[in-house]
Design a protein around this nucleic acid. Sequence first.
DNA 1: CGCATTTGATAACAAATGTTATCGTCCCGC
DNA 2: GCGGGACGATAACATTTGTTATCAAATGCG
Lengths: 191, 191
Amino acid sequence: MLFTFKDRFPDLNPYWEKYTALQQCVKYPSRTTLLQEGKKAQNYYFVVQGCLRLWFDNNGKDTTVQFFFENEGVASLESFQKNIPSMFTIETIEPSTIQILPKAVFNDMLRELDQNPVFLKALMDISFERQRHYMNEFLSRIRDTPLQRYMNLLKERPHIVKRVPQHYIASYLGITSVHLSRIKNKLAGKK
Amino acid sequence: MLFTFKDRFPDLNPYWEKYTALQQCVKYPSRTTLLQEGKKAQNYYFVVQGCLRLWFDNNGKDTTVQFFFENEGVASLESFQKNIPSMFTIETIEPSTIQILPKAVFNDMLRELDQNPVFLKALMDISFERQRHYMNEFLSRIRDTPLQRYMNLLKERPHIVKRVPQHYIASYLGITSVHLSRIKNKLAGKK
DNA sequence: CGCATTTGATAACAAATGTTATCGTCCCGC
DNA sequence: GCGGGACGATAACATTTGTTATCAAATGCG
């Protein structure tokens, strides 16, 4: 998100440069928890190299909401903005290099930019885009069968299927890994 | 939405008054389609009296996204803002009195207020709220069973269950009306 | 290298949900 | 007021998806 920000709104570059200097870059092994569900978000995470997933625990059932790869950033926005416990856990899937933007720095930035209409419009654009994204995820979960969702994933975002272990894919599709196996089997038979 | 707008941002009242004067009020019988899926949204609809639902057709299967009652407003935002065909149909459930705000008027309003930071912040607040709303719908569909979702509806928004025919409730819960019958039966047995 | 862990496939069975069909009731519009 | 459509319940059966268990292959780490 930071990255798209920077790309799309060059007017803001002086701000980013000022603040990105304050970021630290850390390397984590695979399966490291960056933010624990139930804790308050303290940082914004930006993937320099590697892969993260955002998920939550429902009665012991692991449900993945989204994957993040190189040049994508993530924070539990609700938790971040409202200082409430996060509904999600953020963890590494691969050994990853992560750039960390502390919340305090982010807030400073916001405060400084609050009166800047360019920034406000940029923020709104981002917000609308997120809204569209979640709306689409929502609709896809409702109207598409797991098979359709899997085929769509293969077609639209094959890198995810390649890089992410199958049970996380299943957790993202909303099914068990057993059922995903069945689906793959069925697809293989059709060819 | 217009209404909450008006309530929450009194600074904007002069604007609302100027524009609401341009609105027309129409009475529709039950089951009238206000906006057809596939067509471009031309209006913002505000419920004065009655009840609407927002739904889409998926392979002949009717899926309700949201209900709207008195003092709530709705437009197919995507279609409205981007002038693309609507993904949804909007129709009356009961005989309803609807106030219509034509798109052109809405756009005039936007243009005039574009530079007003109070308005921009208000717009952002609304946007965040919608985002939270859809996020919650999304999460509920994923993690809750139809039974849980129904019980939650009974508890949190009993007026919906009272006023809306059961097959629309089922369509909203993401199940068939047959299955909703089973659920109700099961719940009745437990008492 | 070699072992422990992770990952993925498969089978057998169980549970949840959909489909189709039938029936009775209610209610709205002519 | 009456007839047809809308609404809701229920049964029988079909399909989808989950659960549990087992095994084989791949992978990463010491």
